[in-house]
Every structure is written in structure tokens, then in C-alpha cells.
Amino acid sequence: MELQALMSLGFSEKKARFYLAALELGEAPIARVAKRAGVTRTTAYDLAAALEADGLLTPIEKAGRAQVVAEDPQHMLFRHDQQRRSIASLIPELRALRDHSLTQPRVRYYPGREGVVTILEDVLRCQSGEVKGILSMRELLEVPGDQHMAEHIARRRSLGIKLRVVRSYNEEVMDIWPTSADNLREVRFTANNDPFLMTSYIYDDKVAYLSSRRENFALLITSPELSALASQMFEILWATSQRDLDVTPPPAPQ
């Protein structure tokens, strides 16, 4: 019972056995304590040194012979109180470091198709329940591809994450992804139909960029201020764009 209790406090099994043996024997040579604890003599010296550092064992000399004596277990409470006070005094400094890091923007660069997939996975961890997007259908159907996008849309829907998205008819290549209450998606198209060469998602305190297949990268920036600015710019674009139900696609080039 005592062995398990000491191990629950962070003692190794050998260290716990050695300390218990020392408590039972009182003053005793290390070799005798080692034998009672069932450890080798070499290991015993290491254990004795560790327990001495913890303040739980004291080396003494008696009749010209080196011995050890176990200290009162109450010392563990004293040591615990010391550690608690040390941690308490350190917490304000550690919190200051954490708070400073949280105010610093974080920029992550992801190369290749796997980078695009990584960003799309992060979008599904959106906490606010709404994602704003400026999408290039043409590029997304190339990378990561229509099958992956279909799976992404299905997962977004199952997670209850809404998507408001602005697209350009010049980047539409298939009659898919319309406004849909079932798919939690509302679509608008820009009035001038200028193409979007990249895709951007804005959610929580993040702004993500997915490049064209030619440049082949993804970028994720975590910054409350940048996210707020990107959201404001999105809302301006959203207000000047047209609902997909109100838009007649431009004629195909001759």
C-alpha cells in the first residue's frame, strides 16, 4: 500500500522500495538497505543520492562506517509546500509570456496539395459557426479536386458550419455549389466578374489563402486584427455583389 502511494507521488518503484527499507531499518549501511529493498548496491548509491537531494535521506558516519538514515516523511509535505510557493510565484511570469504570444500574429506556410488539404481541415475547426469565403471554383476543382471538395462540403454541413461565399462567373467551370439552405451555403457573384486567382477563407481569428495550382501553396495567418480587417473588406464586397439567383451568367466567349 505504501509502495503504491509513493509511486503515485512520482517515486519510481526502486526509489520507493529503497526509502521504505530505510524507514524500516532506521540507521543502516547502504548495503543493508539495498538488500532489504531488493536492489543492487550500485543502484542503491544512485537512489540514496536522489533521496538525499529530496531531503528524505541523510548520510551519517557511525563507528567509522558510512550509514544512511531516513528523514521524517513529514518533510515531503514541507517540500511540496516549497514547490507550490515556487510555482505560484512563477505563474505571473509564465502567464505574461503566454499573453504576449497570444497577441502576436502567427503565420504558417504549407506547400503543395497537402498544404491546401491542411487548411481545409482547419476551416472545419471553425468555432464561430460561420466561414466567409472568396472562392475560385476553377482552382479548387484542380487542387484539391472535386472529390475532396465534395467530402469537405459534406463534413462542413454535418458540423453545422455556415458558408457565405463570393465567387466570379469567370471562374465557374461547372453548375455546382449554388446557394443552398440544406448545405448551409449562401452565394453571391461579383458585379464585374473579374476572376479570383486564389481562394480565401475568413473564420474566427484566422485568414487562410489557397493559391492557384501554378504557385501551389497555402497560407494560414492567425491574427485577430487581420481577421477583423479581412471580414470588413469581405462585407463590402458582399454588399456590392449579387445573389446567384439574380445573376444571369455572362455569355461564353466566342
Rank of each mutant, 00 (worst) to 15 (best):
D81C: 04
R79Q: 13
E151W: 02
D122L: 09
Q242S: 08
L163E: 12
I176Y: 08
I153H: 06
D81V: 11
N170Q: 11
G160R: 03
V166A: 06
L9C: 10
A154T: 13
R32N: 07
V187T: 15
L56N: 09
H80I: 06
I87Q: 02
A228Q: 08
E52K: 11
D122S: 06
V68S: 02
S212V: 08
K62G: 03
A50Q: 15
D72K: 04
E93H: 12
T222A: 00
P178H: 15
P250I: 08
T179G: 09
H148E: 12
L102Y: 05
G38A: 11
V173D: 05
L51V: 11
K162V: 11
E24R: 14
A191R: 13
A22S: 15
S211N: 05
R106Y: 00
H148V: 14
F11M: 07
P249L: 09
L135P: 01
M149V: 15
V166Y: 04
H148P: 00
L47Q: 13
L141D: 13
T43P: 00
L9Y: 11
L163Q: 08
A63P: 00
E172D: 12
L23K: 08
E2I: 05
V33D: 04
E215V: 09
D204M: 07
K206E: 04
A34W: 07
I161M: 02
D81S: 11
K162E: 15
D246P: 00
A50S: 15
Y45F: 14
D81A: 14
L20R: 06
C126D: 09
G112L: 07
V207Y: 02
G55S: 07
S12I: 09
P250A: 08
L229D: 13
R214S: 10
D46A: 14
G129I: 14
I91W: 02
A34V: 07
I87K: 01
R65S: 10
Q82A: 11
R85A: 13
R108T: 04
Y110E: 02
L197G: 10
L77G: 14
